[in-house]
Amino acid sequence: MPRPPSPRRRASLPPLDPQRFAPSIERPLRGKVRQMAHQMDIQPHRHDWAQLVFSINGAVRVSTQGDGAGSTYLVPPSRAVWIPPGVVHAVTAVERANLRTLYLHESAVVQLGADGAWGHCRVLEVSPLMRELVLQLVVDPDAVPGLPADVARERTICALILDEMRRARSLQLGLPLPREGRLRRLCEAMLDQPLRHADIEGWAAHAATSARTLSRWFREELGTSYGQWRQQLLLAQALLMAARKQPMRLIAAELGYASPSAFSAMVTRAVGVPPSRFFAEA
């Protein structure tokens, strides 16, 4: 079997000046757009306000940093990543992407409710209505609504977006990541080329260690098993493939499953619903 090609060097860019898009009491939600080429990434940064990030087309990877560890989220256009204020994060385009970002003032976050889940990063479903509402937000940082009708329209759009966010279903799609070290480098390699090795022995050899030692790294540093972590990675990869309208039999084969039924059984065990339902929104 031919060896997969090495990942291409990424074009790493600083974030656009966030202060130009800063939300306020008067404008509690601000929209921003950025076109990203394949494998382009936006360097790690943080904001004083909350953020919702997703793409209109093309999949993106959002990585966050916490105390001693972090997480990464692979999301197609039908999903978005919620990032609370102050969390360090970076974005990578898994494929060419039209990135949309919402910045939320603390007054808008209060309107989302007292649910403690808003204090943590998570993945949300993006309804067709919320997608269209985000597209209607002004993305020119220097444009200020002047007419009363324009101000009223923007406030109405913001109120509807917040309502859609409250209604959005949360999905367990995040992958924990160590802050640094050999396991971090290995996890990054698995994210870049998830199908490069089919089993733990292959990835252990990649990291110049034994399968037993690699299993211990996952348990001690991430609190999960290698098998559970890789299963979540394959689910995220399958979601990206489903977003490209690839048939289930092809997804199962690409991910190394002997049959579509075996793949379907894995998805059902992992998320509690069959693939037809899990991938429907993708």
Score class of each variant (00 low, 15 high):
V33S: 11
R20Y: 01
P77R: 03
G68I: 05
P28G: 02
D41A: 00
R46I: 03
P18F: 10
H38Y: 06
A69N: 11
E26V: 05
P15M: 13
D17L: 10
S55T: 13
I25H: 11
P28C: 10
S78C: 08
G68S: 06
Q39L: 07
I56E: 09
V62L: 12
V53K: 02
D48Q: 14
R30G: 07
P44Y: 00
L13E: 14
M40L: 01
P18H: 14
L13K: 12
I25D: 15
P76I: 03
G58T: 08
I56S: 08
S63K: 02
I83V: 15
P85C: 01
G70T: 00
F54H: 10
G86I: 04
K32R: 14
G86L: 04
A59C: 15
P44E: 02
S24C: 13
R27P: 01
Q19T: 13
V81D: 00
V88F: 06
P44Q: 05
V33G: 05
V87K: 00
P85N: 05
R9C: 08
W82P: 00
V88I: 14
F54Q: 03
G31E: 05
P18N: 08
L74D: 05
W49M: 02
G68Q: 14
D48T: 03
S12W: 08
R61D: 05
N57E: 15
V62R: 00
R30S: 06
H89Y: 13
G66L: 10
H38I: 01
R20E: 12
A90I: 01
D67I: 05
Q43N: 04
R27E: 12
R27S: 06
D17H: 10
R61Q: 13
Q35E: 07
L52Y: 01
R10C: 12
A37Y: 12
A11S: 14
P44C: 11
S12T: 11
V62E: 00
P14R: 14
M40F: 11
Q65R: 06
T72Y: 00
S12F: 07
V60R: 02
L13I: 08
R30C: 06
A37D: 14
I25V: 14
H89S: 02
V60C: 08
W49T: 06
V53Q: 09
D48K: 08
F21K: 11
